[in-house]
Write a protein that binds this DNA or RNA. Sequence first.
DNA 1: AGCACGCCGACT
DNA 2: GTCGGCGTGCTC
Length: 720
Amino acid sequence: MTNDTVDVLLPYALEGAYSYRLPAGVAAAPGAYAQVPLGTRSVLGVVWDGAREPPEGKALRQVEHVFDLPPLTETHRRFIDWVASYYLTAPGNVLRMVLRAPGAFEGPRQRIAYQASGIEPRRPTPQRLRVLRIASEGMPLMARELQELAGVGASVVKGLIGEGALKAVLLPGDAPFATPDLEAGHLPLSREQERAARELRALIARRGAGVALLDGVTGSGKTEVYFEAMAAAIAGGGQVLLLLPEIALTQQFLARVERRFGLAPGHWHSDVRPRERERVWRGVADGTAKIVVGARSALFLPWARLGLIVVDEEHEPAYKQEDGVPYHARDMAVVYSSLAKCPAILASATPSLESLLNAEKGKYRHVRLHNRHGRAELPKTSLIDMRQAKLASGTWLSEPLAEAIGATLAAGDQALLFLNRRGYAPLTLCRRCGHRLQCPQCSAALIEHRFRRQLLCHFCGHTAPVAQACPDCHAEGSLVPCGPGVERVAEEARSRYPDARIAILSSDLTRGANLRGMLTAVVKNEVNLIIGTQLVAKGHNFPHLTLVGVVDADLALETGDPRGGERTWAIIAQVAGRAGRGGRGGVAMVQTYLPQHPLMTSLVAGDRDGYFGQELAIRASAGLPPYRRLAAIVVSGSDASATERLAKALRARAPMAQGVDVLGTAPAPIHLLRGRHRWRLLVKADPAINLQAYLKAWLADVTPKGSLRIDIDVDPYNFL
DNA sequence: AGCACGCCGACT
DNA sequence: GTCGGCGTGCTC
């Protein structure tokens, strides 16, 4: 490579960077954003480093434009390369996640505002004088603002502009990011919080890589503690990324960050409007956005000087991206931390086994908070043995739970029923022929949603009208709903407590403004019985809530997935933690058919460490993560037999290697998804094995034909 | 990811 | 006889 050619990484699944000629007199260092021709198109890429031989006998095309933007840092480029090689994908696919801000390359936008010029209008009508008076005091205003403030029509303002009585002023289109006030909403910390904050500040002060696991029970005030670390990182001149698992959370959270730091933080997730995305993207790139609260993709923003990454609720499965590049944002945050020499804080009340093991091994600093902040007590948890509960058919609430709810409502308090199942019934059967309503494109049942009057596939989103007759035997009125969803539990609650003010909180019914409205109603005590899916488990503060009932605690344990225990613990602990935050004490009642299960007994004893210790031992003896590593290979295609043949052929050519086991071929957990048949191979490897090299060697010269596809998922979330 | 090139069904 | 369906392969 000579100095008049550059390699440019493009946001596509290409082998590597492509080489281009630079026009005379134009320079472009690695990290520069460049517009280049590709085929018939003109595309955006980033100048990459590392000597690369341009293909022989190919005339290089010329770079069209080099953008005047802060370059993508060396750290970020190495991060992209690292992620690509870890997840066995093209670096361009990773770069695409960095460039997802259409318009950010068109340069800062400008707005036209107006000010009185001092020139007198030819006809000084009362309306015109009103406009001019407003335009001569304070900030320049946009035409529409002037019009509204003066209460005049558009033509009045237009006329004044035409006569030169108003002169145009260009304002920067995007509001600049304010400087955080590090003391703005500083709350007094408990002694324990102060100790934890000191440890985290020490981590920041070292100005190097380093991960802390901030492990504190629900309500222990973790947030205020990591806010202290954020303040320290910002004081040191760094930017801070605060990752949250779900976008539903961020509105509430943004308000809290704003109170603490006296400014609206940058906000990044897939639903943020393009205009705001551009602003955040540019603010992150030029270093002016000091705090960004975002979903997992925010990690790929072009950080200028990242000084701290906080991963809140680090155990959340939502951090694993399932489509596109299947990366785990918590794990990649740790990688970024090590590449960028910037600290990371993983926060959770129920850390993942992976993080707990890392803390145990001393790789992460373990910072614990044991006490609930303020007076609120952890709720007392009891089990209800459902084997003893004689339930009438079509009912799901045992007598002890039903009575407790009645008493809670009668006392003027709030109760919450938790069931992690959307819709009315998870299964619909024909009582005459046994036919089960099924998604035509997936091997999954259609779920009845009575509220929406629809049947819905929870895997592909396929909808169908609620059937009156069995689609198979055509018997009328023979279809019966089986099992409960939140809507059905709400129906039971309505008949048991006709005076209760019930709210159903479920991701398909309550989103955005609707959800915010519901939560406000809950806080204002306008609702006294909340029935919800995992949506209610997350971070909301319900001050009047004193009773939490878990309708079916066994759901995730029954699937046989080794992660079921960890997940069940996390969600029950989280949802139980919603009770008793108002200082009046809380109670959690857990309905289970497995009251002797170690999870249930530990839950009642509040012995998280004991239970997680047992789970770790099981993982070790089963050779599962975090002790051995996994990769899933999914072979999919629209033709059933061709898919199976390819999967089996692939299995047959798996290289033998010490410390590597290949399991399968087996039908994937969802054997048919969106009309594609899926087979799965699972690779288990000892930690010393270079899993990527093994997979690469195996799949090197396999090129699936037609609709067939091979997808690799390194560190799959589902072990099953 | 696009976009062009290429080979088989319903139309002015 | 053509327009157009989307399968496959290439882009420095």
